[in-house]
Each structure stands twice: as structure tokens, then as C-alpha cells.
């Protein structure tokens, strides 16, 4: 004990400046190491708040679209949020395709938004602050462009679900989906 204490005492004394820098370096290195370690240990806690495996497992929904007549709109639930399925009329498709896309806030061709022209599939959540736009039910307001109207802050969407007027920045998003058969769609 006394030997080591003596040794450190004699080591510490000569060359003040050098001893200080070495000690500073060790202190800095140790602090940085502990800091990086603490930051790494934080990650599991943060990541535990991300969607869990069972939440992710519920990520596809299959829909039978045979009962949906032309001109009808149906809402299904996918990942806890509504998906709009719109069996569009010829008139609605023509309207959507006649638009000059350079005038749009979020330019997108209707051809790119609908895999089959008569079927429009979109997540029915307003891109402003997440309300559900009206227009799915008979008698709902459909906005100035015959599509959907969000009552919360007044966004108007057209018959392709594109934003045309109001505060929303983007079109209603198209989820990943594929036609399993002519009468069945798998969303997700």
C-alpha cells in the first residue's frame, strides 16, 4: 500500500505540465467512452417504442371488391387506418386524366396512381394533420373537385385523390397493393 502511494507521489511531482496533459487526456477519453456507452445503452429503450412485431404482422388486408358497384366508394381498415377503395365512373376517370399536371401542388399522373383505371385505392388520411376526408358516403361533401373534402382544415382532393385546394401539402397516398384476382385486392 505505502509503496504504491509513495510511487504515485513521486511520479506526480516532476514535470507538472506533462502530468496534467496526460491526466486530461485520460479524463477526456474516459468521459467520451462512457458517453458513447450511455448513448448505445439508450437505443434499446428508444427502439422499444417503435412498432412491435405483432403490430407489423398485421400489415396486410385482403378485400373482396366484387360487391362494389361502379360509382361506389368503400372504406376498409388497414394498419388501423382507413383505406378508400373507389370504383370510379368513366366521367370521374376522364376528369382525373384531363388535368394539366404541371398545375398541381403535388404533381402525379392519374395513370400512375391507379393500377386499373376504374379502381382507385388510397389511404384515406388527410396529409395535413391526419383527419379522414369526407366523400365516402352518399351525401357527403366531395369538395370543389368532385373527390374528397377534409372538414378539419378544408383540403379539397380531386377524383384521383390529388390535393387541389387547402392546407394539405400532398396527395392522398397510394398504399402498396396488388390484384390477387379480378375481384380481390391485397393491400400492404
Amino acid at each position: 500500500m505505502s509503496e504504491s502511494a509513495h510511487a504515485s507521489a513521486t511520479h506526480g511531482h516532476p514535470g507538472h505540465g506533462e502530468g496534467e496533459t496526460r491526466r486530461d487526456f485520460l479524463a477526456l477519453a474516459a468521459t467520451a467512452f462512457a458517453g458513447a456507452g450511455a448513448a448505445c445503452a439508450l437505443w434499446p429503450f428508444i427502439d422499444s417504442m417503435n412498432p412491435a412485431a405483432d403490430t407489423l404482422a398485421l400489415s396486410t388486408t385482403d378485400v373482396d371488391i366484387s360487391p362494389i358497384a361502379e360509382g361506389m366508394r368503400v372504406t376498409v381498415k388497414w394498419r388501423g387506418r382507413p383505406v378508400f377503395i373507389d370504383h370510379r365512373t368513366k366521367k370521374q376517370i376522364d376528369e382525373a386524366r384531363a388535368v394539366n399536371i404541371s398545375e398541381l401542388r403535388d404533381p402525379a399522373k392519374d395513370e400512375d396512381r391507379a393500377q386499373k383505371a376504374e379502381w382507385l385505392v388510397m389511404v384515406g388520411v388527410c396529409t395535413h394533420l391526419g383527419c379522414i376526408p369526407l366523400g365516402q358516403k352518399q351525401g357527403d361533401p366531395t369538395g370543389d373537385f368532385g373527390g374528397w373534402f377534409c372538414p378539419c382544415h378544408g383540403s379539397h382532393y380531386d377524383t384521383s385523390g390529388r390535393i387541389r385546394k387547402g392546407p394539405a401539402p400532398l396527395n392522398l397516398p397510394v398504399p402498396p397493393y396488388k390484384f390477387l384476382t379480378d375481384t380481390s385486392v391485397s393491400i400492404g
Partner: peptide
Amino acid sequence: SAIPLVGEPIVTWLWGGFSVDNP
């Protein structure tokens, strides 16, 4: 979600899912 680039992942993280739900 208004935050550029990381907005959407942050919202998903806050929700613990794809919408406001049980988590």
C-alpha cells in the same frame, strides 16, 4: 410529420404503430 425527412419515422415511433392505437 411536418419535420423534413425524419417526420414520418418520428410519428410512427410516437404511435408505436401506423396510427394512434393501443400502443
